[in-house]
Nucleic acid binder design. Structure first.
Lengths: 231, 231
DNA sequence: TAGATTGTTAATCGATTAACAATC
DNA sequence: TAGATTGTTAATCGATTAACAATC
């Protein structure tokens, strides 16, 4: 039960991201990390307060949009002062779920899988890499980022035993669907999909398509437009 | 089968993608490759005509949307028959610019750069990989996908001499902006950016951010929501 | 107090969907 | 002809922006 009614009492409290908000529109979710990054910068510069107008200038959004986005999660601002940088940062961290540990594995230890293994950015977001899996005997046993590649046969047990949250799917397209089904059966909660085929999973599994093909197509299309208009 | 049609003289020319259309909204561009893929499948199954309704079922869009999207580029359909699969495919190829050769180089031959070098999908989209560059002497000279890694110092001359269209930017974040500026000076037309910092380029340069961080943040946010709602 | 800035409501803009006349 | 399906116009939906009362 979300009793949003008794807001007046708690309204002094700074820390309370009402992120209970059932469904944050994807459009908003996409902007949140960018607010987060800006606020981090400001904290490092010891800026204590920032107005929606100032943020808007830096980020290229309208100040209305920023105020509206943030109002989805509670009332973080102080009238005539703006937003408390530190407080807003902490709340965004909560909303984005960076604050608590999420476990991750990588499926497929080709070059892409290895690139992911060496990527530092997810530890900043609260992800901890727990395992890397491949089916190629020549690759099993190699070590990347201090983690030994395991046989993919061992993955289902590994996932359910360690209650792994997220799997980065970096296997060849032919194996994408099969592997995804294995992950779902084993109890994975989210799949970060780098394959080039569309993968079908049940509705309750979080699926993020990190589709590289779309980017390539977009560039190609825009080059074609350019070529035509310059003729 | 509906082969009643190979009739009408070339007076009703099939090939004419009026893609002169100045600015195709990004929302539409993103859907075009998906139409393209479906049509390719249909060609392989020797399907000659497809209605917007049939396409809609397969792709999960509304038939209205499909008709509207396609109408941006000309009138490809035949009333009461639907769309000529082959004709529509060829036109989409034209609009998406897959038909003509685009040259590409890769900047940064770490694991990510190598993954890109081995990726087959861009040759299907008309891209030809012409070079790979890195600044690390230990990497220069290695070969990936039959292409030797060159010293990044040689890149500017290489780009302008061969009139390279697109550069995949897979260098460390610290070097992203500097490298992008070099690319622009050398005359690159598009940048496919895999770095994790925002890169600034002039307006006339096509910039596609293949941002992996956003995907990670989205999963994290959705996991946090799930966690909360299950409590 | 006067000025600043929020949170929110109303207006606008853009994208999707529904409806339908045209026509094969 | 009767049925099917387009291309396009009108209606709806959702997201962004403008405006402003509340208030620090």
């Amino acid at each position: 039960m979300t009793d949003i009614k008794n807001k007046s009492n708690e309204s002094k409290n700074n820390f309370r991201a009402e992120a209970l908000v059932e469904d944050i529109p994807d459009k908003i979710i996409r902007r949140l990390p960018h607010y987060y990054i800006q606020l981090k910068n400001m904290m490092q510069k010891d800026i204590e307060y920032v107005s929606s107008e100032q943020l808007a200038k830096i980020m290229g959004f309208s100040s209305s949009l920023i105020r509206r986005d943030l109002s989805h999660f509670g009332q973080f601002g102080k009238k005539s002062y703006g937003y408390d940088v530190n407080c807003l940062y902490e709340n965004l961290q909560l909303i984005l779920g960076f604050g608590y540990e999420k476990t991750m594995i990588i499926l497929g230890a080709g070059f892409l899988g290895r690139a992911l293994a060496n990527n530092k950015s997810y530890s900043e977001r609260g992800y901890v890499l727990k395992g890397i899996f491949d089916k190629d005997p020549a690759i099993i046993g190699l070590e990347f980022n201090d983690i030994k590649v395991m046989d993919v046969e061992l993955a289902p047990d590994f996932i359910s035993r360690l209650e792994i949250d997220v799997a980065a799917l970096a296997v060849p397209a032919e194996e994408a669907q099969k592997t995804a089904e294995m992950l779902v059966r084993a109890g994975i909660k989210g799949i970060w999909d780098f394959t080039e085929t569309p993968v079908e999973v049940p509705d309750d599994i979080i699926l993020i398509e990190q589709n590289m093909n779309d980017g390539l197509c977009k560039i190609s299309c825009k080059l074609a437009q350019k070529k035509q208009s310059s003729r």
